[in-house]
Design a protein around this nucleic acid. Structure first.
Lengths: 340, 340
DNA sequence: CGAAATTGTGGAATCGATTCCACCGCCGCT
DNA sequence: AGCGGCGGTGGAATCGATTCCACAATTTCG
């Protein structure tokens, strides 16, 4: 099925030694231009492709990175992380070996062993939502990066979204349209996103000189079904906010439903802004949901670039990146209703 | 950083030759039980792990499969394909090398070359929605499978969802609840899903002895924005259908909006059934959308198992699988309103 | 009791590319 | 003219595991 030609055959066909053939193909300086040209011509004639496995054995460089994740692809976002990582890797000639642990620490350790015995040059340890983790010790054996996760100790580089900044920007967008009473529909799980987005919400208000009213923060499960009653509670009162910032797009969907239930139109009567830019929700709602995008693709890229930097130079500094969440404008934000 | 022990060192430590050490570790029959035990003990003491690269070079088996896709992860489903493939591969000791072409045929050829020169044992060529493709010739060099795609010639095994059967089952579910006038909200793109689901719709009606009324088929772009007017046209007439089968969940979302605009309740006044089981839509809608699930995970599993079967036995037959789309019941289907 | 068949082990070739080291000409300088 | 140096090339070791073949030590059987 596979009839690959070897370097020895190539060398013979070109009338040179293997040493010279190898050098000619890798553009080694010390090879006569004529020889190089001849070897390369013969190589492409014969359809020679080098055997990466042999090269890896000899050079101890596999041009492969391992991506270990707790929940590959269980979330709709995961794909963008993987895509970013894969493309960034490919740009530098690297490939990605994919492995998912399902969150089982024992399986995870075995998987990392498997990747290491395949001589991966580096590892990406990805969580599928922003988390604080204790990375397995085996990661230390090769350059590694935490992706969408942060470690308690700071020994590994890491990249996470800027929850605080994103929330600030979301609220700033509402402020910019003239809103002053802004509700926050959020949830109670103890994850970085919860705290960060609340902080960002508060900071944005403070920076604009708007008093922070704790009664404007409503909590429910982070689903459409949870967003509905939370948003309803905020909107179904005389001093209702003119805009809602929602923890995520799913909760924003619930907020839409709450507004509809009260006969309020989005955005004429109440503006809504979400978080996550979950396409299938944000883009599907009517009107389209303005929201903050999570930089999944960019985090994937960043992680690969940092790992490869450390592959090339083990002494590269340990960075911790916090990537911005860009605003995605659709149609759910407008000026507050005149009656105010 | 990496201080790996080699087999020669292991052999010396255990007081045997490399040949014996190798045999002891791979449970070769011809090695004395005592020797085997000793070698294995020493191996685990020293933390010996074999070097897969060296093994691959020697045995010509990489325990790696390549997954080439046109649009990895651009759709929310992609992840499930990858997950299924990865887990099925892992169960047999294989790993997945991931590569995405973005649909560029030239890049794609190069990527396949890259995978081949890494000695992958097989290839999965995945489309991210059911498609008819002309697979690159290089696939023939190793066992390969088409995933969520079908070739014009039938030389490669392939696996696709059962569009016809899924649509039949969806309509059957509506019939089962007593519906007789059933609309079909679909679109006009020339892809297998369009034709298959239409055929299934018609077949189900015919099988139930219900006349097929072409005026009950409405066409629009396959988005929520396209589903809205199409559904509206069907519902906003005196002899409106009591149920709608929608090409996908996004169009079903538009159908919900159309029903709401006409003051019709789902499912009391009109039942709706979707296709795709796109969690973030189907699960988020109120009431939850009953729909047909695409067997992405299962297709990933099937593809890997078939590739590996061909890896082990090159003469394994070329199969073409059509996997069932299971019904996912939520709350959008009920009996037709009494007035008929 | 000796020949034949096992059983267990080791030496060394092998997979395919990279690279160290040695070497051969030839140019240029004194 | 002689010598140092350099550009270009080839031989062979090397990476780490697998496996063919040979062989020693038993065991089995006529």
């Amino acid at each position: 099925m596979r009839g690959n030609i070897t370097m020895a055959e190539l060398a013979r066909a070109a009338g040179v030694s293997m040493a010279t053939a190898s050098r000619a193909l890798s553009d080694h300086p010390k090879v006569a231009p004529a020889t190089r040209a001849r070897v390369q011509a013969v190589a492409s004639d014969l359809g020679y492709v080098h055997n990466s496995v042999a090269r890896t054995l000899r050079t101890n460089r596999s041009y492969t990175l391992g991506l270990v994740s707790d929940q590959i692809a269980t979330t709709p976002y995961a794909g963008r992380i993987i895509l970013g990582a894969q493309e960034a890797a490919a740009r530098q000639g690297w490939l990605l070996l994919l492995l998912n642990s399902g969150g089982d620490p024992q399986l995870e350790r075995r998987e990392i062993q498997t990747l290491l015995q395949r001589q991966v040059d580096g590892l990406l340890y990805a969580a599928m939502y922003h988390q604080v983790v204790t990375p397995p010790a085996a990661l230390a054996q090769v350059p590694s990066v935490l992706l969408d996760a942060r470690s308690d100790d700071a020994s590994l580089p890491s990249v996470v979204p800027d929850e605080v900044g994103g929330a600030r920007a979301a609220v700033a967008e509402l402020l910019r349209h003239g809103h002053r009473r802004i509700g926050f529909v959020t949830h109670g799980d103890d994850i970085p996103a919860t705290h960060g987005r609340l902080r960002g919400y508060q900071k944005a208000l403070l920076a604009a000189g708007v008093p922070v009213d704790p009664s404007l923060v409503a909590v429910g499960p982070s689903t459409p079904q949870g967003g509905y009653p939370a948003a309803l509670a905020l909107l179904d009162r005389p001093d209702r906010p003119s805009a809602l910032f929602c923890f995520n797009d799913r909760m924003a969907m619930g907020a839409y439903q709450a507004a509809a239930a009260l006969g309020l139109r989005v955005p004429e009567d109440v503006s809504v802004i979400g978080f996550d830019n979950q396409e299938s929700v944000a883009d599907a709602l009517r009107p389209g949901l303005t929201t903050m995008a999570l930089p999944h693709y960019e985090m994937g890229v960043w992680a690969v670039e940092v790992v490869l930097a450390r592959v090339h130079d083990a002494a590269a500094p340990v960075e911790h990146a916090v990537l911005p969440c860009p605003l995605v404008v659709r149609e759910s934000v407008a000026a507050p209703p005149p009656t105010g």
